[in-house]
Structure formats: C-alpha cells, structure tokens
C-alpha cells in the first residue's frame, strides 16, 4: 500500500479548441509524500496550472486517477469535492486573488465561514494565521492598502487558516520583486519545516525552486527530474 499524500496515476488531460486537440497532460504520474516541499517547473503552457488544479480538485482529469490522503477525487461529487477542499487544501495564487471589498482579516476569515466555528473562535484563528505570516498589524487594511508582498501574505494566511495538510501554490512569487519574493519563500519554507505542511509550488524562478526539497520539470505532458539545466 502506497502512503504518499498525493498520488497522481496515469493522468491525461485533453482540451479541445475547435477541431484542435491539445494533450496537456499525457499519462502523467506523480507521488508526493507527506511533508514534502515540491517545486514544479516548466515552460509556459506546459500544463503546470492544469496539474495543480487537478490535484486540488478544481478540475477533473480526462483519464487516470488522483488520490489525496484517503480521498480518490474522481469519486467525489462536486459538492463533496468543495467541502473536501475546504478542509484539506489551501490555495495560493500568483495574483493573490483577495476580495477587494473585504479587509485582510475578513479575507482570511472566508474559509472559516464554512465551518461550524463561532465568531470568537473564528477571530482567534484569523489572528493566529495573520500572526504566522507577520501581518497582525494590517488586519483591518484593505487589499488596495497593502503591498504585493503583503497581499500575498494575506493570501497565505487565508490558505492556512483552516489548517490544511496540503498547500498548492501557483507561481506565488511570480508577481513580486526580489525582496518580497524572498520573504514569501522564507514563509513557505517555514510552513514546510515547522508546521509540517506538504507544499506543491509551481514556479518559473530557479531561485525559488532551489528552496524546495525536490524539483520536477513538466514538459510535453510528462514529468522529469531536475537535471541542472
């Protein structure tokens, strides 16, 4: 019995654009053990986001199976997939994707609205998450009042607040300057090392990939080991 947290088995993903058929993922397999910090690299359009979406249950494969923890995603209905995501996965996006009309703390609180937690418990959790990302003093600020790096930290706090085992990051530093990017990477490393989170991070940036414990390349629908190119 395989005990990797994430198991991607022989996954195909095909898109059709008009009469054109695009095989983005072509029988791809991947295992990510619990606690690993994995970097996924690859040229633009190689299917990195597609793969991340499949692992996070945002999209379904054309063929193959994806198992995360004890759940085989293909067997879940869209509603149970949604509640599975709420409990098990945190997403971090390149453009942060905060709701502009909500303050930092209200953004972080969003996933907790789906739980049975009461108001004061939710506040407590939000405070803790903001503390981990070092933004306790910006709780009442709105996204437009924050720098890119700060917005991304709010995004990370939102991903963390339900204490998921798996964090999926799609180019989390892609929109940031060097210094902010380093800070975000420090934070992800800390989450991996000290909080035991399993992290899959898509990135273009070799310096970012270097922070991970393993680096994989995605090209022509398949994965290959980092070869030092």
């Amino acid at each position: 019995m395989n005990d990797a947290l994430v198991q991607v088995r022989e996954v195909h993903k095909v898109y059709h654009r008009g009469s054109e058929r695009i095989d983005v993922l072509d029988g791809l397999s991947l295992e990510v053990p619990e606690g690993e910090f994995l970097a996924l690299m690859g040229p633009s359009g190689s299917g990195k986001t597609t793969l991340l979406n499949l692992i996070g249950g945002l999209d379904t494969p054309s063929a193959g199976e994806i198992v995360v923890g004890r759940s085989s995603l293909g067997t879940l209905s869209s509603a149970s997939l949604a509640s599975w995501r709420a409990g098990h996965v945190g997403f971090i996006f390149q453009f942060y994707n905060l709701l502009p009309v909500l303050s930092a703390e209200a953004n972080v609180e969003l996933p907790l609205l789906l739980t049975r937690l009461g108001r004061s418990d939710r506040r407590q959790r939000v405070a803790t998450a903001l503390e981990i990302v070092g933004l306790s003093d910006r709780a009442k600020h709105y996204p437009r009042q924050l720098s890119g790096g700060q917005e991304q930290r709010v995004g990370i706090a939102r991903a963390l607040v339900t204490d998921p085992t798996l964090l999926l990051c799609d180019e989390p530093t892609g929109d940031l300057d060097r210094v902010s990017a380093e800070e975000i990477l420090d934070l992800l490393e800390e989450l991996s090392r000290e909080h035991g989170k399993t992290i899959i991070m898509v990135t273009h940036d070799p310096a970012a990939a270097a922070r991970a414990s393993r680096v994989l390349h995605l090209d022509k629908g398949r994965l290959s080991r980092e070869s030092g190119t």
């Binding site: 996070g56 869209s78 949604a82 509640s83 709420a86 709701l99």
Partner: peptide, 16 residues
C-alpha cells in the same frame, strides 16, 4: 467571476 471562482476554490459549494 474570478471572485466567485476563488470562493469556490476555498470550498464554497455551487449552491452556496
């Protein structure tokens, strides 16, 4: 539409 997509990513169901 991208905000609704984010809410769904966070686990908000279609019905919600």
């Amino acid at each position: 539409s991208s905000e609704f997509a984010v809410l769904k990513t966070l686990g908000f169901s279609d019905g919600l």
